[in-house]
Nucleic acid binder design. Structure first.
Length: 363
DNA sequence: AAGCCGTGGGC
DNA sequence: TGCCCAAGGCT
C-alpha cells in the first residue's frame, strides 16, 4: 500500500502542472497561481456544493453573490428571503446554517471568517470537509480536503481494498500524505477537478490522467473497482412465533429487554427470532391454535416472518407471569405503544379471532 | 453512530 | 424505469 517516499512530491507536482492547464473556470474560483478569492465566496460555494452538482450550484451562487455581496449583507438578510432564494437547491438545513454561520461570523468574528480548520469547524454547517476546503482555498492553509472525489482518487491510486465507508480513515490518511505544503488551495481544487472530470465514478479517462503512472488501480486494469463498496447484503429472513394469550377480555403483553432490538418496548410474548424457528415452549399451559397465515416485517438488517399461536385461558390469574408482563384490555391493545411488528401481529390475531372477540364483547 | 436530509442528471 | 451519484453535516 505504501509507495516510495518520493511519490507524494511527484504526485502533487504532476497534479498541479495538470491543474495549471486544465483548471475549470468557475464563478467562485480564481485561476491557478493567482491570489485566492474572497473567503465569503469560497465558503458560500462550498456550502452550496455539499452533495450538489456544480451545474446546479452555478445559478444559485451568482444569484446569492449579486443579492448579498458580503457576509455582512447576508447576515443582515431576512430569513424568509434567504430560504426563498435557496428554494430548489435542496438540503434546506444548509440554508438555515448558512444564515446562522454568516451571523456568527459577523457577531463573533468581526465579520471575518476564521482562517484555520479548527476555527472554521466550530461554525454551523461547516464540517470536516468544508473547514479544510475553506482553510486551504481561501487562506492557503496546509489542510487536506477529503470529499467524495478525493476518496475515489486516493482509493484508486492505492487500490485500497477495504470497503467503504470503513476505508474512509485510511483514505483520509493517504490523502494527507499526498498533500503538498505549497499551493494547498490549488492542490485541493486540482484533486477535486481530477475526480470530477477524469477520475470519474463510472468511466474514468485514464489516458488523460496526470497521475496515471502512479495509479495502482490502473495497474490492476480495474480502476472502476475502487473505491470498493460494501456488498449490499441481502436481508436474511428470520422466523418467529407470537403467542396471543387471551384471558377474558384481556391479552398478555410482555416487555422487551432494555437493550437491543426494540429494547425496552412493550411486546407480545414471543420466542426468539432466528434463521431456524426454535421449538420453545409456549408461555402457558393451554390449548394452542396456530392461526392461518403469517406476519411479515422488515427491520434494518433482517426480515421477519411471524406465525401467531392463540390460546384462551379461563382464568389469567392461574398463570405465573414473566417479569414485566401484564394483562392488557383488548380495547387498549393498539394504544399501549406496541412497536409496529407487534401491532401487526395483534391485528393478525384479532382478524382471525374476530368472531371470538365479537362474542366476548357481546357477552 | 446509523439515518436522515432534496434535487437533477446520467446511463 | 430505476438506480446511482453529486465539493457532507447534523443528530
Amino acid at each position: 500500500m505504501r509507495v516510495d517516499s518520493s511519490a507524494p512530491y511527484n504526485h502533487a507536482r504532476r497534479l498541479l502542472d495538470w491543474y495549471d492547464v486544465n483548471a475549470r473556470t468557475l464563478p467562485w474560483r480564481s485561476p491557478p497561481g493567482t491570489p485566492p478569492p474572497d473567503p465569503y465566496r469560497v465558503w458560500l460555494s462550498e456550502i452550496m456544493l455539499q452533495q450538489t452538482t456544480v451545474a446546479s450550484v452555478k445559478g444559485y451562487f451568482e444569484l446569492f453573490i449579486t443579492r448579498w455581496p458580503t457576509v455582512a449583507a447576508l447576515a443582515a438578510a431576512e430569513d424568509a428571503d434567504v430560504m426563498q432564494a435557496w428554494a430548489g437547491l435542496g438540503y434546506y438545513a444548509r440554508a438555515r446554517n448558512l444564515l446562522a454561520c454568516a451571523r456568527s461570523v459577523v457577531a463573533d468574528h468581526g465579520g471575518r471568517f476564521p482562517d484555520t480548520e479548527a476555527g472554521l469547524r466550530k461554525l454551523p454547517g461547516i464540517g470536516p470537509y468544508t473547514a479544510a476546503a475553506v482553510a486551504a482555498i481561501a487562506f492557503g492553509a496546509h489542510a487536506t480536503v477529503a470529499d467524495g472525489n478525493v476518496e475515489r482518487v486516493v482509493a484508486r491510486l492505492y487500490a485500497v481494498e477495504t470497503p467503504m465507508p470503513a476505508a474512509k480513515p485510511t483514505l483520509h490518511a493517504l490523502a494527507a500524505e499526498l498533500t503538498p505544503t505549497q499551493r494547498c488551495g490549488d492542490y485541493a481544487q486540482a484533486m477535486m477537478d481530477l475526480g470530477a472530470t477524469i477520475c470519474t465514478p463510472r468511466s474514468p479517462d485514464c489516458p488523460a490522467c496526470p497521475v496515471a503512472a502512479g495509479c495502482a488501480a490502473l495497474k490492476l486494469q480495474t480502476p472502476t473497482r475502487f473505491p470498493v463498496k460494501a456488498a449490499k447484503v441481502a436481508r436474511p429472513t428470520r422466523q418467529g412465533t407470537i403467542y396471543w394469550l387471551r384471558a377474558g377480555d384481556t391479552v398478555l403483553v410482555t416487555q422487551r429487554p432494555p437493550r437491543g432490538l426494540l429494547g425496552g418496548m412493550r411486546a407480545l410474548p414471543s420466542d426468539e427470532w432466528a434463521t431456524v424457528r426454535p421449538a420453545l415452549a409456549p408461555p402457558a399451559d393451554a390449548t394452542w391454535q396456530l392461526l392461518p397465515g403469517s406476519v411479515r416485517h422488515v427491520f434494518t438488517h433482517f426480515e421477519l416472518e411471524l406465525v401467531v399461536m392463540a390460546a384462551t385461558l379461563n382464568d389469567g390469574r392461574s398463570v405465573a407471569l414473566p417479569a414485566g408482563a401484564t394483562w392488557v384490555a383488548l380495547a387498549e391493545i393498539d394504544r399501549i405503544g406496541l412497536p409496529t411488528v407487534f401491532a401487526k401481529a395483534a391485528r393478525h390475531a384479532l382478524a382471525h379471532l374476530n368472531t371470538d372477540r365479537v362474542d366476548e364483547k357481546a357477552a
